[in-house]
Write a protein that binds this DNA or RNA. Structure first.
Lengths: 85, 85
DNA sequence: GCTATTTGTTGTAAATTTACAACAGACGGT
DNA sequence: ACCGTCTGTTGTAAATTTACAACAAATAGC
């Protein structure tokens, strides 16, 4: 089906929480190397795994994953502030 | 990884739009039997495919897919109205 | 009734995701 | 310098998703 690459913010979110890949892996129930593969965007998570990550970070899927390259969160925040002023 | 089953509203949304599985399949770029598998929830879509469906229906992933059984849309609507009054 | 379209289902092969093991490099604390 | 933890990477096997072909049943239009 020629899969598109999905971009994600997993490593940023994980580092914000100050946890290691191993800890995150345990929380979401996968091998720690799998977290590595996901952070390096070497392959896409399954929908179920995407939901587990979303549940762990308490953020909707669309905020963590995107079909388009993700800007740094800091920049997104800046744009939001611009819009509301 | 013992995958959880993900529930979805694909068949309702498709029927609301009045299109066939074949038409939907063409729009999202998969085989029409694949749409059948998804509607019967025999397997979960990949994250990319979930995004294509989300883009086609112009709805966020979380409104179409869920880890918990989905109530009819009519009921969801009723709950929303209750909350706001 | 006939025909076309849609849907449900099954089977097999290909592609993708995940687990797991192994190893190397970076980094911090002692 | 040593030790432990974290990270990056590669390889292989297992599980899951997808394509595709085939066929039956249901439905709608003529």
């Amino acid at each position: 089906m020629e899969l598109r690459k999905i971009f994600n913010r997993i490593s940023v979110l994980r580092q914000e929480r100050g946890i290691s890949r191993k800890e995150l892996a345990e929380k979401i129930g996968v091998n720690f190397q799998t977290v590595g593969y996901l952070e390096r965007e070497e392959y896409n998570p399954s929908l179920d795994l995407a939901f587990r990550i979303s549940e762990y970070f308490n953020l909707p899927i669309n905020l963590i994953f995107s079909t388009k390259p993700l800007k740094p969160l800091s920049e997104e925040l800046l744009n939001l502030k611009k819009d509301t002023k």
